[in-house]
Each structure stands twice: as structure tokens, then as C-alpha cells.
Design a protein around this nucleic acid. Structure first.
Lengths: 184, 184
DNA sequence: GTCTATAACGGGATAGAC
DNA sequence: GTCTATCCCGTTATAGAC
């Protein structure tokens, strides 16, 4: 699965060659088919893998650090996805690709919806800790907007049209705007 | 170009078969290559085409209607892209595909950046008509967020994870939030 | 479970006539 | 400018041995 994430991040879902994946993983193509049945099977499994991995690195705080206030934790959690480190870039690229592929491949939609829901709920949860008085509906809407915006900014960054630092500023600004809106 | 937009919207950039495009346009594959050189040439031209077409349908108001106030015009212009009509769906799908492809195909980036800039400036302009006192920087940032959010919502809609009506509500809510923020 | 080898096919691109 | 015909390569997927 790590090899799959790497190859998709490097070539895209469109450019994924089972042979290249096999080489990256150090096995034969036949073995890939043995385990995943077909190309779509690979994609589905990869989607699950990166979704789990993203959840881990946005949730886990390293044990030495002092705990953050809710507001910073929210901002951190979103800005973590806009970083130029191998893992994050890999995850963002692959996520964007799988999202885009789902437009034409219904087989990916269920898994994608599941992963998206988890993410939105996690963000709504964090928003609720900053604005305890807000209604669940308002929190959910804000979370949907923030995560959708993050996806939008992410593709722009990865497609070379938006410098990372600027993307981060825009994201932080949106958090401001949404929190102000939730204050009433 | 109309045929290209249709085929990309139906199959995606990855699913675009030159033969299918030729059939859709009612010509031979050789003729496509004669005019566009290669596959990438087709994509570049299509990107320009849908960007022009989108600009037309978001800008032109039909002559019979009375003029809208700035606020409604802004909202309209953004919500026009979240509609389930053949042309809009075609444009949104193709736009998303080309954006996603640009992550791995540098040949598309220049054209994409150009088209994005025009769009962002148009939205910033509309925002400026609602909030004449806002700085150019603040208007630009809000426009970038709103357009990036629209792209994000659009893919979620097209990939089946977000009902159109809900996407429209979220978009309208973001316009609210940004305008409130620009008020100070 | 894992490999080598290969079948089978799709589709990008071009030659050359008109 | 436009066509028909075709080359040829890359890719998915499987057969069958170990």
C-alpha cells in the first residue's frame, strides 16, 4: 500500500501502471493481481490506506509537546494537509486523484464517501470545541466548507498555480471567517 | 471543441479516446491530429474553449431581465457553476479533469493559470462592487477562497458525495461569511 | 504465495491517396 | 483539409510452474 501511494502520487491514478507498482513494491505483477483482483481493487485499497494514514497524522500529537488550545488544534489539523513533506504530498496528491477518478468510476465512491464523512465529522468536532454554543447543523456546514476548500486549495497548489505559503494563509483566513460566522 | 468538451465530460481526460472524439465530431482521427498535433494539443485547446465558454455564461445576462444588485450578481455568478444543465455539467467536469491532470502534466499549467487568474479577478471585481471600501488584497484573497471552494464543492458534487442543492447552500453560506469578513 | 512468460487488446499516431 | 488503412507499442490480465 505504501508503494501504491507513492506511485499514484508520482504518476497519478491515470498514470498508474501495475508493472511500475509491482517494481516499487519489489514483487511481480501477478502477485499484485493475486492480492487485489484488478486495477480498481488496487485503487480501492489505496484509498482506504491513505485515508487511515491521514487520520493518524492529523490526530496524533507527539507525546512530548504540551496540549494545544482548541482553536490552534483546529487550525493545525487543517494546515497539516498543506505541507511539503513526502508523506503529506503523497497523501494529498493521491487523495485528489482518487476524488477526481471517482467522478468516472462509481466503484470508488462508497469508500470515498466513507472517508470524507469521517474527516468532516472530525473537523466539526474540533469546531465545536471552539464554539460550544453553535448548532450541530452550523458546525457540520462549516466543516464541509473548510474541508472542501482545503481540497480545492490543495489541487491548486499541486497543479502549480498556488504557492504553498499562500494556500496556508488562505486556509487560515477561512478558519477565521467560519469561526466569526459561528459566533453569530 | 464542443465535441471534446462533451467527450471529456463523459469519460474524463484519462478516458478520452481520440477515436471517440473523432466520431463525436463527425470526422476522422487523422483530421484531429492534423489540427491539434497530439493528445495534449487537444487538451490544451479544450481548456481554452471551456474557460472562454464559462466566462461567457457567467458574465452575460439575458437582455430582457432587469439588472441585479451587486450582491445578487456575485452570488449568481458563483451559483451558476453549480447547476445540473448539460453545458454547466460539461464545463465543470472538464474543468475539474483538466485541473487534476495538470498536477501531472506541466503542459497544461500555463493555460490553466491564465484561465484561473481571469476567473479570480472577475470574482474579486464583483466582491469589490459589494464592498467598495475593502482593500484589493482582501478582495483578491476572498475571491481565491470562493473560487477554490467552488472547485472543491464541484468535484464533491460530481463524484456523487454531495447533493447539488446542499452544495449550493454551502456556497451561498461562504459568500455570506466572506462578505461579513470584508465588512470588518 | 510468488514467480516467469505471454496472451490479448486497446488506442495513439502516421503514411499516403484524394 | 479530409479520408482510409494500418503500424506498433504499452498495458491489463491470466496461465501454469514452483
Amino acid at each position: 500500500m505504501e508503494a501504491a501511494a507513492r506511485v499514484i502520487a508520482r504518476r497519478g491514478v491515470r498514470g498508474l501502471r501495475v508493472e511500475e507498482l509491482a517494481a516499487e513494491a519489489g514483487v511481480s505483477t501477478a502477485l499484485i493481481y493475486y492480492h487485489f483482483k484488478d486495477r480498481t481493487g488496487i485503487l480501492r485499497a489505496t484509498l482506504e490506506f491513505i485515508s487511515d494514514r491521514a487520520e493518524r497524522y492529523t490526530t496524533e500529537r507527539d507525546p512530548g509537546a504540551e496540549p494545544l488550545d482548541p482553536r490552534s488544534e483546529l487550525e493545525q489539523s487543517l494546515l497539516l494537509e498543506l505541507q511539503d513533506t513526502p508523506t503529506v504530498r503523497e497523501n494529498s496528491t493521491a487523495w485528489g486523484e482518487l476524488r477526481a477518478s471517482a467522478v468516472f468510476d462509481p466503484d470508488l465512491r462508497e469508500e470515498l464517501a466513507r472517508a470524507t464523512l469521517i474527516w468532516v465529522q472530525e473537523v466539526a468536532e474540533l469546531l465545536g470545541q471552539v464554539r460550544p454554543m453553535a448548532t450541530a447543523t452550523a458546525l457540520a456546514a462549516a466543516a464541509e466548507r473548510l474541508t472542501a476548500l482545503l481540497e480545492g486549495l490543495s489541487v491548486r497548489w499541486l497543479s502549480g498555480g498556488l504557492p504553498l505559503e499562500h494556500a496556508r494563509e488562505l486556509m487560515a483566513g477561512a478558519v477565521d471567517a467560519e469561526l466569526a460566522r459561528l459566533r453569530g
